[in-house]
Design a protein around this nucleic acid. Sequence first.
DNA 1: CGGCATCCGTGACGATACTG
DNA 2: CAGTATCGTCACGGATGCCG
Lengths: 208, 208
Amino acid sequence: MSPRRSYDQYCSAARALDLVGDRWTLLIVRELLAGPRRYTDLHADLPGVSTDVLASRLRDMERDGLTTRRRLPPPGAAYVYELTAHGRRLLPVLQALGEWGRAELGERRPTDAVRAHWFALPLLRELEGAGLVEVRLDEGVFHLYIGAEDGPVYGDGRAPAEPDARFVMDTGTCTAVARGELSVPDAVREGRIEVSGDGAVAKALREA
Amino acid sequence: MSPRRSYDQYCSAARALDLVGDRWTLLIVRELLAGPRRYTDLHADLPGVSTDVLASRLRDMERDGLTTRRRLPPPGAAYVYELTAHGRRLLPVLQALGEWGRAELGERRPTDAVRAHWFALPLLRELEGAGLVEVRLDEGVFHLYIGAEDGPVYGDGRAPAEPDARFVMDTGTCTAVARGELSVPDAVREGRIEVSGDGAVAKALREA
DNA sequence: CGGCATCCGTGACGATACTG
DNA sequence: CAGTATCGTCACGGATGCCG
């Protein structure tokens, strides 16, 4: 029970930082935008966070209405953490941060961790209204729910249904897109993204 | 000289948080969006920040290219801190945080500090392309440079030139607008904002 | 007086070990 | 698997002092 350390300022940005300004909190939100995750999954995809800090953040976030904790039905009964609708509305904050941070991204440092679904945020911006998209990278597979009103914004692994488009690209292409140096249509034109699928976006991208 | 504590993740949002995720940093940016400020002014408008933390953040921000330090010409020679163009590009981050934080703003608590120019952020969103606007509240006067390509985004005190519009409103009206419960045109219609000035926006708002 | 640097007490953080 | 317990370290907040 952390007696929250507030900025005590009557300013909505300061209030937001009272809730999500602590170290790791926004990165936990980024992870949970991929849908329900177990404690161990979160811990694995947030290298460097200590177990007690992760547990403490998840408690604070639940208390503040950002997340809920739910027990999965057996078999494999376990707790999963999930964003509430209010927590999901932090997506624009992460997008704004991500867009600003593109300038700092640079080359991958030897100490940098990478997860495939971290590339979901920069791709979301580029694919308005594309529906369900599956993306295959060297690092792994993830999928995007673009234009979804509620539920997860993206997810790890294969798409849970037939996607409107499938992308295959290599790491270099994906980082160029993430850094804003290359647009998705340009990458397709240059043959650096292989597009398949029957959705409108897949067809439009192949024709361009 | 703080050897930065990085998340070490190849993700642009995490990189952004490496630079602006420390406590107080984004609130210092919010202050500097009002233009060049002296150390003492910053300390006065950020109640609760300790002197060494403020000095340390300003050093880090200068090292990271967010701010520059400049000596004012005499008389009154003093150092002022100022955002670089890169630092000013954090405005969308603060706007996204502010929009999300509206839900948490609620009533003003007795412990909450208030500054007039903290209301600039929510107003910016509502007044696209309005030019130079002066706003008079019970708490003080500030002005907005809406649509400006560079330089400060808002400022304390009177507008430095003849503004395109002048607003006068009371605290209740301004908090209602800040919380998103009342739009500026509606507030004008209800007589809760007194609009003067010769700019296009001033005329449009008076006629509506 | 503005712009810090220093010192100190408290709390947050990170790593590891341990438990139901 | 999902945390709790423990501990050393560092960051933070408050006060005070120094120096141009």
